[in-house]
């Protein structure tokens, strides 16, 4: 157990925890775009930058990303110092120029008071390269998409921009995307994503789309699940169960 100071308040922290984890646990707001508690941190958006110092640092300070910096005894953290706010603003200004059409970015920027206008990109992209989709896909074991190219040409894409072969159409990437950049179109029968069309398995009770066939096969093969696991949707499962319990209590 170590003790650290965040915005002049003392907190206990476990060894190996990051500044962000300690702050979030104690309801201290540090904005993030590329962070997700289920995924390994990458420190790409830099929005969670905080200022740190220590008692024996002779007054020198450092800006670090809260999502990556492991706490150490006696660490002193400022989440709203002048330097932090300035950098946060610059990051948002830059992202505003990058994807002016993203409402998430626009709202965040307005909230922080956008000050500097930079040359705007006009390609209509809403991708902020937070890697959430890439990391989620990798964590699920598919690795269907990855970050390709360099610099401002960097983008998320399947290998060689061809249709994503190992994609199972689970849609996690589109769900986790904070700006709504990843296009996913669902109809009653099919889902289209990454230039591929997937057929749905429908709920045998209500007939609503349940999961793509490819994802069902992938999940049944890789996780220990009964073969009929994906036949009824969770809503129908729930009502079936509650009916069951209702009959039991009679």
């Amino acid at each position: 157990m170590t003790q650290i100071l965040i915005d002049n308040r003392k907190f206990n922290a476990e060894e190996g925890e990051t500044i962000l984890e300690v702050a979030r646990r104690n309801q201290i707001d540090i904005p993030t775009l590329c962070h997700h508690e289920a995924l390994e941190a990458v420190g790409a958006c830099r929005l969670c930058t905080v200022e740190i110092t220590g008692e024996d640092w002779n007054g020198s300070t450092k800006l670090v990303s809260a999502c990556l910096y492991p706490v150490e005894e006696g660490l002193i953290v400022q989440t709203r110092s002048e330097g932090v706010l300035r950098l946060r603003q610059t990051v948002l200004d830059l992202l505003m120029a990058r994807c002016p059409e993203s409402t998430v970015i626009r709202d965040l920027a307005t909230q922080h008071g956008q000050v500097t206008e930079y040359q705007q990109f006009t390609d209509g992209s809403k991708c902020i390269m937070c890697y959430l989709c890439v990391r989620a896909c990798a964590k699920l074991g598919c690795h269907a998409i990855s970050a390709v190219n360099r610099g401002t040409l960097k983008e998320v894409a399947p290998p060689f921009h061809e249709h994503a072969e190992s994609c199972v159409g689970c849609g996690t990437c589109a769900t986790i995307c904070p700006t709504g950049h990843i296009e996913m179109v669902d109809t009653a029968e099919t889902r289209t994503i990454w230039k591929r069309e997937f057929e749905f398995v429908t709920c045998k009770v209500c007939g609503e789309p349940l999961i793509t066939k490819a994802y069902r096969d992938y999940a049944l093969e890789n996780r220990r699940l009964p073969n009929d696991y994906y036949t009824v949707c969770s809503a129908c499962k729930k009502s079936e169960l509650s009916g069951h319990f209702a009959r039991l209590s009679l």
Binding site: G43, L47, T90, L95, Y118, A147, N149, R150, G151, T152
Partner: peptide, 21 residues
Amino acid sequence: LLEESCGKCVPCREGIFQLHA
């Protein structure tokens, strides 16, 4: 540097682009 930035973090990827512009 604009061509060689890996593009991972915002300040480098977007910042260099704007500095160059």
